[in-house]
Design a protein around this nucleic acid. Sequence first.
DNA 1: CTGTATCCCCCCGGATACTG
DNA 2: CAGTATCCGGGGGGATACAG
Lengths: 105, 105
Amino acid sequence: MVQSTSNWSCGVASVMDIFGGKWKLNILWRISQHEGLGFNQLKREVEGITNIMLTRAIKTLVAENLIIRKELKVTPPRTEYYLTASAKSLLPIMAALNEWGKDNL
Amino acid sequence: MVQSTSNWSCGVASVMDIFGGKWKLNILWRISQHEGLGFNQLKREVEGITNIMLTRAIKTLVAENLIIRKELKVTPPRTEYYLTASAKSLLPIMAALNEWGKDNL
DNA sequence: CTGTATCCCCCCGGATACTG
DNA sequence: CAGTATCCGGGGGGATACAG
């Protein structure tokens, strides 16, 4: 339990690389609140985001194994987004961060 | 304890605004490991950082009430840096983030 | 030792228009 | 509905030189 690692910041730095962007964290949060959201639903939830930014964020989140993209073969086309287990395990930590932010900012 | 807030991400977004930069988190960590570091000591600890980037990061961290800058009136001049209580309360969360990063990236 | 002053580049974030 | 293509501006990040 003693944090012996001298390079403590490396893991956090990786996390920051992933969530340093403007939208990805918010997107994860929205999906966690309502799994199976579609593209435009997600766009409405994440206020202010544009098509291109949402597309980019989704792509990287999928590549990082944080969300799952499920394409339904229907007309009109529909795609649903879900969190991976990795992303879900991150949520409690984010809740803690949220508390800290509210108390200290 | 139930996370009732619908705008959960707002607090986290503020945190990310603060730590989205490349250096600030690493600087906090170094100071936490060795309170009272001087400018050049800190520069050596935070590998790769330049004078100007360190200066900028320190300024914003002070402004955000995350570190304390203590200027000693001696020759040659010396300045020491310490964490505020706010910053210290953040460390356990960062440790959790670190664990997550190592397990999931 | 502890910083500041310039100058510069790259890339994130975005507006707009278009496509299957 | 679910994206892609193109173009662009601003700012974060940095190299270098200078200062108290």
